[in-house]
């Protein structure tokens, strides 16, 4: 079975590095982008199964990226996991309202993150 594709949209290099390691380790095919615009382009091109999306992205923030992906029918299957450094309820609610499938607050537990991603992608397959 072809490995599932995950797009990481995050601008902090060390966090990117950790996510890359974790998800590759879990057997996913990982692509990385560092800003919102690129995140959109990469999504359309790669049609990833899941996007790990940071809210505080340069150029185009995570909310906007999320909204546009949800507007794009060709990306209907793509799951979105929001990462937020702000623990605000409002940010979480907003993410879910915009169509994100799950969220994680920084700093996150790596095990939970991987678990959540696994879950999301398994449900999609079922």
């Amino acid at each position: 079975m072809k490995p599932k594709k995950i797009l990481i949209a995050e601008d902090e290099p060390s966090i990117v590095l950790s996510l890359e390691f974790l998800l590759q380790n879990a057997g996913y095919e990982v692509t990385v982008t560092r800003d919102g615009n690129e995140a959109l382009r990469m999504s359309e091109r790669e049609k990833p199964d899941l996007i790990v999306l940071d809210i505080m992205l340069p150029l185009l923030d995570g909310f906007e990226v999320c909204r546009r992906i949800r507007e794009n029918e060709t990306l209907g299957h793509t799951k979105i996991l929001m990462l937020t450094a702000r623990g605000h309820e409002s940010a979480i609610e907003k993410s879910l309202a915009l169509g994100a499938n799950a969220y994680m607050t920084k700093p996150f537990s790596t095990r939970e993150l991987v678990k959540k991603i696994n879950e999301l992608l398994t449900t999609a397959a079922a």
Binding site: I15, L17, L19, P107, F108
Partner: peptide, 8 residues
């Protein structure tokens, strides 16, 4: 942000 990296 740094805390996230450290923990991860």
């Amino acid at each position: 942000t740094p805390l996230t990296s450290i923990r991860a």
